[in-house]
């Protein structure tokens, strides 16, 4: 049973990580990345590393999306301004 759990989690991590690379838009990538964080947390837990899983959940669920989306917003705003001046 434990092996099955590890295999399922590994598959979920591999699938989500591939999706995070294939998706090209940063905002959509942030969504996939947050699911990748969840999958990684499950993998760490089934490998009996709850401390690492907790770090992953703490950082990955709200902090990383916020940092990425704020950066995207800043870059887009600058892009809009430059387009407006042209």
């Amino acid at each position: 049973m434990t092996d099955a759990l590890v295999l399922i989690s590994l598959f979920a991590v591999a699938a989500t990580a591939t999706a995070a690379v294939v998706v090209r838009d940063p905002a959509r990538q942030a969504l996939v990345l947050s699911v990748l964080g969840l999958a990684l947390a499950v993998l760490f837990t089934v490998l009996q590393a709850p401390d690492v899983a907790l770090s992953q959940l703490a950082v990955g669920s709200a902090l990383t999306p916020l940092l990425i989306l704020l950066s995207v917003r800043k870059v887009r705003r600058r892009g809009r301004r430059e387009e407006g001046e042209r």
């Binding site: 401390d51 899983a53 770090s55 703490a58």
Partner: peptide
């Protein structure tokens, strides 16, 4: 139990936001 300064600190900072 699982956790500690880093994990709790991140939760605290997120809470403020």
């Amino acid at each position: 139990s699982p956790g500690g300064g880093f994990q709790g600190g991140v939760v605290l900072a997120t809470a403020l936001h």
